[in-house]
Structure formats: structure tokens, C-alpha cells
């Protein structure tokens, strides 16, 4: 007879209604199937045990066995957290940077940060390279960097430092409070993450200009956190399933993200009267300039310097190959679907 399955309690940082709960569920389903029922994961939304921003503490303490979150949510404990997904953009996409994590030394740096420097009792992995995050939602058009001055804008993590440098006043609000804050005039522009999540919480009801393409959070991935003791006590094959399940879910997540994000973007335009723009070159280069100012302050910290050096080395080599190698996809798209792109 089969032994009782080992049940792990995993909480996400997302509300029950967010599309990312479905992403986390794909991970859970894969782990349960691959383990032949020896592992069961009890998946809970944000707030079920602890608040969205408290999952790191909870996993380290063993209040939760595992969590599905993003590193930027605990950057209050150490700013270096933000370098694992929401740091400066040297030219790498989320895919490039996830590859850095898995093959370019990022994983060891992350381990050093969480286990050695901070003394946290966790094992963390990154998965699902998120499409670059839109610059977000504005009531009026913004064309030049100077148009941004005085805006009260919502974002999180190092992106907050970035946009403050660009003359915006930044508020960091939990996702659920963004729309009420827009209605109240507490903020007048914001970004969250992607067309599906944005649409689900009603961004289109409070602003009609949606700006895609930005360097503020261009390479984020989900963070899968596990309590270290729980991991170490598992049979090696089960531990491998939990770890490699992240890689499996990453591919599955990409499929539903592509499907849903694109569909929601279409419907935001066709059904909700949203105007979709590309963020102007002027704003993008102002973002890079602002990063230039922030990077030296980050590098004052030796560990952050080490991480940034590692990322630069990786990007310099890998992205050279990526960009030199990649065919002009826009050309092909325009060839088959002419007149659609407005780049």
C-alpha cells in the first residue's frame, strides 16, 4: 500500500482571483503527477496564512513549507533582492536573466544572499521569465520624459527609485489598492504587471492610455521558495521533482501567459476602449540615464557589486550572441500581417 502523501503548504503572494494563481496551480499539478501522488501541495492565495509580503519570513520559519512570489517583495530586508528580476537592464530579457540565474552563477549568488548573508532558512528558485512589464496606465498621453514630472505613480522595488529619479512621486501600493487609489486621486498613473492581471483588477476603468515597453522591470521571474529543512528531509527524488518542477512549470506558464496576455491586450483595445501605445524612445533613454545614476549607489554595497558584475559579464557575452543571431522578427510579422505593427 502506498504511504500517505507528504503534504506541503504553499502560499502565493497573489489574490485568489489573479491569473497567477493558475500559473502556480500548473506547478502544483506537475509536482503531484510526477511524484505519483507521494507529494501533495496545498495551494493557498495571499492572506490565507500570511500577507503577500510576509511569505519569505513565513517560509524561513516553517509557517509555510513553500511560497510562490517574487524577490522584489522582500527587498526591504535587503535591496539586493531586487537584482534578481527587477534590477538595471543591461540588454538582457527575462529569458536571458533566468538563464543567468540557472547557468551564469545567479543561483549561487542568490543562495549566498539568502542563506549566508541573511541567514534565512530557505531554498529559492526562479522560474517563468515574465514578458517585460508595461510602463503602465495613464489618463493622458505621455510622449516625452518631461511629461512625466509631477505624476504620482505606483510601482515597486528599485523601479520606485528609478521613477523617482525621473521626477515622479512614487507610491508603493499593494495590487488591490491601485484602482481605488486612482479613483481617489492619490495616484494618477501606475503599472502593475501584464494585460491579464491589469485587466482583472480593472485598470481600464480608471485610465485609457496603456504604455507597453519599459526598462523599469524588464526581466522578472517568479520566485519559488522552500523551507530548507523541509527540502533536506525529502527523499532525493522528491526533492528533484520539486526543483525540476519549476523548470517544467516555467514552460507551461509561458504558454498560458502568451495566450492570455495577448488575448487580453486585444480585448482591452476592442472592448474596453483602451489606446495601446509604445513608450517613446525619449522616455526609454531617460530611464537608462536614471539607471546610470542608481547603479553606482547600488555598487557601494560589495555584494550588490558582485551580482551586477556577474550580470554584466553574462549579458555582454550572451546578448551579443542573442541580438546578432536573432532574425528580424518584426520584418517577418509585418510581411505576413502587414500594417498591424506600430513600433
Amino acid at each position: 500500500t502506498a504511504a500517505a502523501p507528504k503534504v506541503l503548504k504553499m502560499q502565493t503572494s497573489w489574490p485568489a482571483s489573479d491569473i497567477w494563481m493558475d500559473f502556480a496551480r500548473q506547478y502544483v499539478e506537475r509536482v503531484e503527477k510526477m511524484s505519483g501522488g507521494r507529494l501533495k501541495i496545498d495551494l493557498l492565495p495571499a492572506g490565507a496564512v500570511v500577507k503577500a509580503f510576509q511569505v519569505m519570513d513565513a517560509v524561513s520559519d516553517g509557517v509555510l513549507d513553500a511560497a510562490h512570489s517574487v524577490p522584489v517583495y522582500w527587498y526591504g530586508k535587503n535591496k539586493a533582492a531586487s537584482l534578481f528580476g527587477t534590477g538595471p537592464v543591461f540588454g538582457g530579457s527575462a529569458t536571458t536573466m533566468l538563464a543567468w540565474f540557472n547557468g551564469g552563477g545567479g543561483r549561487e549568488l542568490y543562495r549566498e544572499l539568502t542563506q549566508d548573508i541573511m541567514g534565512l532558512n530557505v531554498v529559492g528558485l526562479l522560474g517563468f521569465p515574465m514578458p517585460a512589464q508595461p510602463f503602465g496606465w495613464f489618463k493622458t498621453e505621455v510622449n516625452k520624459a518631461s511629461d512625466l514630472k509631477g505624476f504620482k505613480y505606483r510601482t515597486v522595488g528599485l523601479a520606485a527609485d528609478l521613477l523617482q529619479k525621473m521626477g515622479m512621486s512614487v507610491a508603493q501600493l499593494p495590487g488591490g489598492e491601485i484602482v481605488p487609489a486612482m479613483e481617489r486621486g492619490v495616484i494618477d498613473a501606475f503599472e502593475f504587471n501584464n494585460p491579464s492581471s491589469d485587466r482583472r483588477f480593472g485598470a481600464q476603468d480608471v485610465a485609457k492610455n496603456y504604455y507597453l515597453s519599459s526598462y523599469h522591470q524588464a526581466s522578472e521571474s517568479f520566485e519559488f521558495l522552500f523551507n530548507k529543512d523541509v527540502m533536506e528531509d525529502l527523499d532525493p527524488d522528491l526533492r528533484a521533482i520539486l526543483e525540476h518542477g519549476v523548470e517544467a512549470a516555467s514552460t507551461a506558464n509561458t504558454a498560458i501567459a502568451m495566450d492570455n496576455y495577448s488575448k487580453d491586450l486585444m480585448e482591452l483595445q476592442s472592448k474596453e476602449g483602451v489606446t495601446v501605445h509604445r513608450t517613446s524612445k525619449d522616455i526609454l533613454s531617460a530611464q537608462l540615464k536614471a539607471w546610470d545614476e542608481i547603479i553606482p549607489t547600488l555598487e557601494a554595497d560589495p555584494f550588490m557589486k558582485k551580482v551586477l558584475d556577474s550580470q554584466r559579464t553574462w549579458v555582454e557575452r550572451v546578448v551579443f550572441y542573442e541580438l546578432m543571431n536573432s532574425p528580424d522578427l518584426a520584418l517577418a510579422y509585418d510581411h505576413y500581417f502587414p500594417g498591424k505593427l506600430k513600433l
Partner: peptide
Amino acid sequence: KYAERSWRYMEVSVNSPAGIPI
């Protein structure tokens, strides 16, 4: 235990770029 760990990494609030200590 909770506070001691927070001291160890001089935790600041994630709510704003101001980095208010907590």
C-alpha cells in the same frame, strides 16, 4: 526571534523608496 532576525539585516519597509526602518 522575529525581531532579532530583522535587526540582522536592518530591515526597511518595502512600501516606499524612502527605506523607512522597521
